[in-house]
Design a protein around this nucleic acid. Structure first.
Lengths: 226, 226
DNA sequence: CAGGATCCAATTGTGGATCCGG
DNA sequence: CCGGATCCACAATTGGATCCTG
C-alpha cells in the first residue's frame, strides 16, 4: 500500500475501513496475527498502519541521531492512533503518545516538544474491542483530529506540570495521578530498567523510562457523540 | 437549645460548631452516642440537630395527615443536613433528601414536590469522617445553601425522569443509575418491604419503598473549594 | 531500546441493603 | 413506618507492569 498523497486521500482511505473487521483487513493484506491476546499487544495498531500505508517503525528508528522522531505519515505530519472501545463505545485504554525524553532541552518546552508535534494532527481509528478474537473486531470510527485551543491549553498545562517537576529534580513526584488529559506512565519491559538525565544542579540522576499517555476520559471526548 | 429566630442566628450558631468535635458537642449537651459505628447510623446527624435547636423527629411524624412534612427549622423553612467527608475533604456518602411518595399527585410535580421544598434551603454541616470514633470527628464546614438556577434545573431534570417512569408504570426501570445529581435508592429496613401505588391504568401496583438521595459528586460541588 | 500498545492487581466508586429510636 | 443516615459487596476505574518486533 503506497503512502497517501494528501490528508483528503488518507481520510478517505481510513473511512473505507469503517464497518470492516480486523480479520478482513488482515486478509486483504495477505497477513495474520497471533491468536493469543497477550501476544498481540500493539499488533492491531501496526496492522492498521500497514492498511493505510504508514511508514513502518523499522524505517523510523534506524535513522541515527533523530531518536526516531518521524510521523506515521511524514509528508502529512499526521500520526495514526488506534483506539479500542468497550461495549458502551468508550475507550478501554489510555493512548500512548511518545516517550518522555529528559536529555534534550527543547523537548522540555511545550512549543518545541515532540508530544505537541505528535498530537498536532492525529488520524484516530477506533474499533470495537468487545470480541475476544482480534479478527472479529470491527472498525467503528476513523477521523482526522487537531486539538482545539481549549484542548491544547489542557494538554499544555498537564505537560508543564510534569516537566516542571523534573526540572526541579522531583522525578519521584511524577506519577500517573497527575494530568487531567495527558499523563505520564512507566514505559519499559519491566520496572527495573533505568535511564539517566541531568538534574537542576548538573548532577546525573536515574529514573525509570516513561511515556506520555492520553487518559481514556479525554479521548472519549474526541469520539463522535454516542 | 431553643430554635433560632432567623437564618442569620442559625448560620451564626452553626459556624460556632466549626472546629469542634462531635464529642465536645455531645458533652456540651450532656449526652453521648453508642460506640459501635453500625449502631450510630443517623445519630450524628440527630446530635447536630439538637445542638442547633432543630425540631425533633417525633414532633414531626406524630402529626396525622401531613406525612411528617415539616422542616428541621419550620419557621425558617430550612433543612439541616450533615455530611461526612473523607481524607481528601470529599463527601463519603450520598445525602438522603426525603421519601419518594407515589400516592399524592402533587408530590409528583417538581414545583409542588416535597423534594424541591426540602432542598430550597439547606444548612449543610460537614465533618471529617476520617476518625473511626465518632467523638473525634470534627466539624469542618457549616453554611446555608439555596440551589442556583443551574443546580435547580439539574435536580428537576433528574426528578422528572424518575417520576415519568413511574407515571408510565415502569417502576422496575427506576434504579440508582439514573440521575446526575438526584438519584432514587431503596429506603426500608430490608428488601422485602413493599408499598402500593396506583398505576397509569388505575391498577394497584407494589414496589419497594424508595427515597431521593443527592450523589456525592453533586454535594462535593457545594462545599468550599479545597 | 523505541514504538506499537494491552494486561491486571489494587484502589475507588456506588447501588442496593441495612441499622436505630420513637 | 419514617426520618436520621451509613454499611458493604461488587462493579468500574486506573496506575504501574508487561508483551512483541526489528
Amino acid at each position: 500500500m503506497p503512502a497517501p498523497r494528501d490528508a483528503n486521500e488518507l481520510a478517505l482511505r481510513a473511512r473505507e475501513l469503517v464497518g470492516r473487521t480486523l480479520g478482513e483487513i488482515a486478509a486483504a493484506l495477505g497477513t495474520s496475527l497471533d491468536d493469543d491476546p497477550r501476544r498481540t499487544k500493539g499488533k492491531q495498531g501496526e496492522l492498521l498502519e500497514r492498511a493505510l500505508g504508514a511508514t513502518p517503525d523499522d524505517l523510523a528508528w534506524s535513522v541515527p541521531g533523530d531518536e526516531g522522531r518521524r510521523h506515521d505519515f511524514p509528508s502529512l505530519r499526521v500520526e495514526l492512533k488506534s483506539i479500542p472501545l468497550d461495549a458502551r463505545g468508550r475507550p478501554k485504554e489510555s493512548t500512548y503518545v511518545c516517550r518522555l525524553s529528559l536529555r534534550e532541552t527543547e523537548t522540555l518546552v511545550w512549543e518545541t516538544s515532540w508530544v505537541r508535534e505528535k498530537l498536532a494532527n492525529v488520524l484516530w481509528v477506533a474499533f470495537d474491542a468487545t470480541p475476544e478474537d482480534w479478527w472479529d473486531r470491527r472498525i467503528l470510527h476513523a477521523f482526522l483530529w487537531a486539538p482545539t485551543a481549549d484542548q491544547e491549553a489542557t494538554l499544555r498545562a498537564d505537560f508543564d506540570e510534569v516537566v516542571g517537576l523534573f526540572a526541579r529534580g522531583r522525578a519521584e513526584a511524577v506519577t500517573a495521578h497527575l494530568g487531567t488529559a495527558l499523563q505520564v506512565r512507566p514505559k519499559a519491559r519491566d520496572g527495573s530498567v533505568r535511564t539517566t538525565f541531568t538534574g537542576p544542579e548538573g548532577e546525573t540522576l536515574a529514573t525509570i523510562p516513561r511515556g506520555f499517555y492520553l487518559r481514556p476520559s479525554f479521548t472519549a471526548t474526541l469520539l463522535p457523540a454516542q
